Simulated assay, not measured.
Amino acid sequence: MAHAKHTGQGNPIIRHKFTADPTVLVHNDTLYLYTGHDTPPAGVEDYVMNDWLCFSSGDLVNWKEHPSPLKAADFSWAKGDAYASKVIERDNKFYWYAAVSHRSIPGMAIGVAVADQPTGPFSDAKGFALISHDMIPPTANQKANLDPTAIIDENGQAYLIWGNQTCYMAKLKNNMIAIDGPINIISLPAFSEGAHIHKNGDWYYLSYGYGMPEKIGYAMSRNANGPWTFTGILNQVPKNCETNRPAIIDFKGTSYLFYHNGALKGGGSHRRSICIDYLRYNQNGTIIPVIMTTQGVEKATS
């Protein structure tokens, strides 16, 4: 049963649970926020993430929590680890790309789940991994398949972008659950992880965790397929947290940056919390660097 929480208290926006790695979707004038869920026991400084959470809002101030729509264990071929993800809508279905640890193939993998409504429940769309470690160019990095992001361009072509230390890109078939063609590498300076692709006007933007600890850097292109030109730093290292994962979206005529920090009591790099601040563009399409605030954003009105 959904229930209301978190009214107008600024950043972080979710305060009763630790939330990380935002991905956002607008459907029927409602914004859906999907997050990772940090649950390390007391005294443990490591990533312990087993499920994802879902919140919705009509104004970005009042948030409603929904039952967890997806767990790492919902992928029968996965052994756990609910890392960063991306939810996207196509043809009235909702596709959720998520990074998990594979049960039988060494290394991280990306699964895809599907639902008929944004709050789920979501179920494994394939019964096996969309991307596994043996599919990418040879690498010793067992965490290479992290943090997927996806977009559908103006021609209806869908793309998946992901990676850790190396950024990978592949086309998706129209069914959204199969790769269409080769897996390519996108060359980006200081690429760490946490990729996010979005479009504004005639420009595509690929933002990502830059360096370690992570700022957010971004590249621009006229085409979702690239080539990408590195453009600059979007924001600095977040408070009390070494990682940084952006989600950028327009809602009711205004652009927003979702990210996480470690600002809650007891928080840190393994106990993170989602925040929102305004995002603005220069006339030439570049992004004005975002200053992270404690006050967050005001109510979004249409």
Score class of each variant (00 low, 15 high):
residue 154 E to R: 02
residue 16 H to N: 15
residue 25 L to I: 06
residue 109 A to E: 02
residue 201 G to M: 05
residue 166 T to E: 02
residue 227 P to M: 03
residue 287 I to R: 03
residue 175 N to H: 06
residue 125 A to M: 13
residue 47 Y to S: 10
residue 95 Y to K: 03
residue 174 N to E: 07
residue 200 N to F: 13
residue 119 T to V: 13
residue 193 E to Q: 14
residue 43 G to C: 02
residue 206 L to A: 06
residue 158 A to E: 08
residue 129 A to C: 12
residue 202 D to W: 01
residue 50 N to S: 06
residue 225 N to W: 08
residue 249 I to S: 09
residue 290 V to H: 03
residue 135 M to V: 10
residue 47 Y to E: 12
residue 49 M to K: 12
residue 42 A to D: 09
residue 25 L to V: 00
residue 284 N to G: 09
residue 291 I to D: 09
residue 277 D to W: 05
residue 159 Y to T: 08
residue 33 L to M: 11
residue 22 P to F: 10
residue 11 N to D: 02
residue 101 S to P: 00
residue 93 K to V: 01
residue 275 C to Y: 12
residue 31 L to S: 10
residue 34 Y to V: 12
residue 145 N to P: 06
residue 40 P to E: 01
residue 262 G to P: 09
residue 214 E to K: 15
residue 185 I to M: 13
residue 260 H to S: 13
residue 40 P to A: 01
residue 84 A to C: 02
residue 218 Y to C: 07
residue 18 F to G: 05
residue 45 E to G: 06
residue 17 K to Q: 12
residue 157 Q to K: 15
residue 296 G to P: 01
residue 96 W to V: 01
residue 167 C to G: 00
residue 282 N to T: 00
residue 205 Y to Q: 09
residue 272 R to V: 11
residue 40 P to M: 01
residue 10 G to E: 08
residue 44 V to A: 12
residue 19 T to W: 10
residue 39 T to C: 04
residue 132 S to Q: 15
residue 153 D to S: 08
residue 286 T to R: 08
residue 110 I to K: 06
residue 271 R to K: 15
residue 189 P to D: 12
residue 185 I to T: 15
residue 241 C to D: 12
residue 160 L to K: 01
residue 117 Q to F: 10
residue 124 D to Y: 05
residue 177 I to T: 14
residue 225 N to Q: 04
residue 199 K to D: 09
residue 69 P to M: 10
residue 268 G to R: 06
residue 273 S to T: 09
residue 57 S to Q: 11
residue 244 N to C: 00
residue 85 S to V: 01
residue 104 S to T: 15
residue 263 A to T: 14
residue 82 A to W: 05
residue 105 I to N: 00
residue 286 T to L: 06
residue 247 A to I: 00
residue 124 D to I: 07
residue 84 A to L: 00
residue 238 P to M: 11
residue 269 S to E: 09
residue 114 V to H: 02
